[in-house]
């Protein structure tokens, strides 16, 4: 084969190869276009489904929010409605007990005292429930002021002293001299301390309860830390994990044995958080519990 013939053959071959390549390229281009179209349809379909789902979820969320708001309104209204007759029961119960006492009818006075005690328990429950609902609805207002810690603690101790004595518990108070004042809501601080101290008293017999208050740094933030330690029955890790949930007590038999509603610690935590702090608990069965909560020393910006 001479060179010219070879070149001719090569040119023909190259031309055929070029046409084949063009055909392949065209086929590939068409294939890509079709895949692209299919992808676009798929994307549009996906987008449509996401939109539909989002709309469904939005609807479901609105229904749930409305139901929750309606429930909160209902609980708030009901609590108000319950409080009015309950105040009458407690008021007249006190009068009755005093009258019976004056008449030396001690048996009947004792019975009326039990009615009174049940009425007071119901009132605490209703108040706690109302507070929790208000916190959840963002309607519980706080009134911040400079507060002296010691007098508040003493007022709480006075209230729980009968229970302390009834359970034969001793109380130790350790207040750091630096922890004299902080800016917070005194009513809510009193409520927190009362809940924790009355719990400690309730679950401890022939034991010791110790309250420690002192300044503490959380990062760069100055806080006031409160620890309430008791040598009482304590809790298992499982019980501890659920202790701040609503209507949960360490054991279902706790209410029968120690009283209480299971709202107190849920409310206590909500109050701590409302005041800008938080609460934790550690405990071991048979070795007592320690509840520690902290509050900001001063309000941000002040």
């Amino acid at each position: 084969m001479d060179q010219i013939r070879a070149l001719q053959l090569r040119i023909e071959r190259e031309q055929r190869a070029r046409r084949a390549a063009e055909k392949i390229a065209e086929e590939k281009t068409r294939e890509l276009f079709q895949i692209n179209q299919a992808l676009r349809v798929l994307t549009e379909d996906l987008q449509r489904r996401v939109d539909e789902r989002t709309e469904e979820l939005r609807g479901a969320r609105d229904v749930a929010l409305a139901a929750s708001a309606a429930k909160s309104d209902f609980v708030a209204n009901l609590s108000h409605e319950l409080r009015t007759p309950l105040n009458a029961i407690i008021g007249y119960g006190e009068m009755l007990r005093e009258d019976l006492h004056a008449l030396d009818l001690e048996d009947l006075a004792h019975d009326s005292a039990r009615i009174l005690s049940a009425g007071n328990f119901l009132l605490v429950l209703i108040n706690d429930l109302l507070d929790l609902e208000k916190i959840e609805a963002g309607q519980l207002a706080t009134h911040l002021e400079e507060v002296e810690v010691a007098p508040i603690l003493w007022s709480v101790v006075e209230i729980i002293r009968p229970d302390l004595e009834a359970n034969n518990n001793t109380l130790e108070l350790a207040i750091d001299p630096l922890a004299s004042e902080l800016v917070t809501d005194p009513t809510r601080l009193r409520q927190i301390l009362h809940n924790l101290l009355s719990n400690a008293t309730k679950f401890t017999r022939d034991g010791k309860i110790r309250v420690e208050i002192g300044p503490e740094h959380q990062g760069l933030r100055r806080t006031m830390a409160f620890a309430i330690r008791d040598s009482g029955v304590g809790m298992t890790p499982e019980q501890l994990g659920r202790v701040f949930q609503r209507f949960v007590q360490a054991e279902s038999t706790t209410a029968q044995r120690y009283g209480g509603t299971g709202l107190g610690l849920a409310l206590t935590r909500s109050l701590c958080q409302l005041l800008g702090g938080d609460i934790t608990a550690i405990s071991r069965p048979g070795q007592g519990s320690t509840f520690r909560f902290w509050l900001p020393w001063e309000i941000a910006g002040q």
Binding site: M1, D2, Q3, R5, A6, L7, L9, R10
Partner: peptide, 11 residues
Amino acid sequence: FSLELAESIIE
């Protein structure tokens, strides 16, 4: 080798 050989082989 060469262009001629290549084309000759293909043919």
